[in-house]
């Protein structure tokens, strides 16, 4: 059985049990074992990078060192965590001088970054450890007739030289994962454009404009839902639509659903056990098509 240290981060355990439940249940069914390690803190994503880049790198490296001590690769669900940890992992493996500087800092906590493990996003584990074909064969309830707009967000893909997950301009991993469940992958305009999630709190108006464009484009393309990989994209698009209804004319009822939720349902997990009440835009439209 493949084992990973599950890096949960902050937003998922605090706000999105739908992501955590679906990912845990799906991975268990697929034979991936998740280990919850103690002493892992915030990953120190862009908001902390904005405050101090050295701190962000050091804390990310500290989190990696804890998984190294347990001899486990890290699996992240949140793309913010993925970006922060995978970036630190590549930077420190490629730059010895930087590694020494960061290890001087980690030594105060009695830890050391060695560069001995991998940091993988949930979708990478599905592709590399399970594979699209095996995934297809594991599906019990194919999502036939469901039209899904794939949304990568930014930090699963970019900066691509450090994250190395997929082609940043023409990625295919999520589309393949969607099709493996029997669903239709919908082509829509500006698919790779940012959801504005990180501007929430500092520039709400711009954030909402970016999210709205995404929802409108997916709606126009006839999607039944937008499938996300990141809790920030989920908030920007799901709660974002509640805000859009107040501010703009028009209908905003595009269900936003993490890929892990689609996966768990296709593997036969009861949707009621996945905390569906978290969704502000209800999933009825999606569920009626696949149940």
């Amino acid at each position: 059985m493949t084992s990973y240290a599950l890096f949960l981060g902050c937003t998922i355990p605090a706000r999105q049990p739908n992501y955590e439940l679906s990912a845990r249940k799906a991975l268990t069914k697929l034979g991936v074992d998740l280990v919850d390690l103690a002493n892992m803190s915030c990953c120190c994503p862009p908001p902390i990078q904005s405050i101090d880049m050295v701190t962000s790198l050091a804390v990310a490296a500290n989190n990696i060192s804890i998984a190294e001590a347990a001899d486990l690769d890290i699996l992240t669900l949140c793309s913010g965590c993925f970006e922060s940890l995978a970036m630190a992992n590549t930077l420190l493996r490629e730059d010895n001088k930087l590694k020494t500087k960061i290890n001087d800092i980690l030594s105060k906590a009695g830890n050391e970054f060695r560069g001995s493990i991998q940091v993988k996003h949930f979708v990478q584990v599905l592709k590399e450890d399970i594979g699209f074909e095996r995934l297809k064969q594991s599906v019990i309830k194919p999502l036939n007739n469901l039209k899904v707009a794939a949304f990568y967000g930014c930090h699963a893909l970019r900066p691509s030289n450090l994250l190395k997950l997929d082609d940043p301009e023409r990625p295919s991993i999520l589309e393949n994962l969607i099709e493996a469940l029997g669903a239709e992958n919908v082509v829509y305009r500006n698919k790779l454009k940012c959801c504005g999630g990180l501007l929430r709190g500092s520039s709400d108006e711009l954030a909402l404009d970016l999210a709205r464009e995404k929802v409108l484009n997916a709606t126009k393309a006839g999607a039944d839902c937008i499938s996300t990989l990141c809790p920030f994209c989920f908030v920007a698009l799901d709660i974002g639509q509640v805000q859009m209804k107040r501010k703009f004319e028009g209908t905003y009822d595009m269900p936003i659903i993490h890929y892990s939720e689609l996966l768990a349902m296709a593997l036969g997990v009861d949707p009621k056990s996945l905390s569906p009440e978290i969704h502000r835009i209800k999933l009825d439209k999606v569920l009626s098509k696949i149940m």
Binding site: P17, R24, D36, A38, N39, S41, D52, N62, K108, A109
Partner: peptide, 22 residues
């Protein structure tokens, strides 16, 4: 919900790192 309880974040060690980076 049947989720495992959260592990501690290791605040003491984290603060040592934060102190070292200023």
């Amino acid at each position: 919900l049947g989720l495992p309880s959260l592990k501690e974040v290791g605040l003491d060690n984290l603060r040592k790192i934060l102190q070292a980076t200023g």
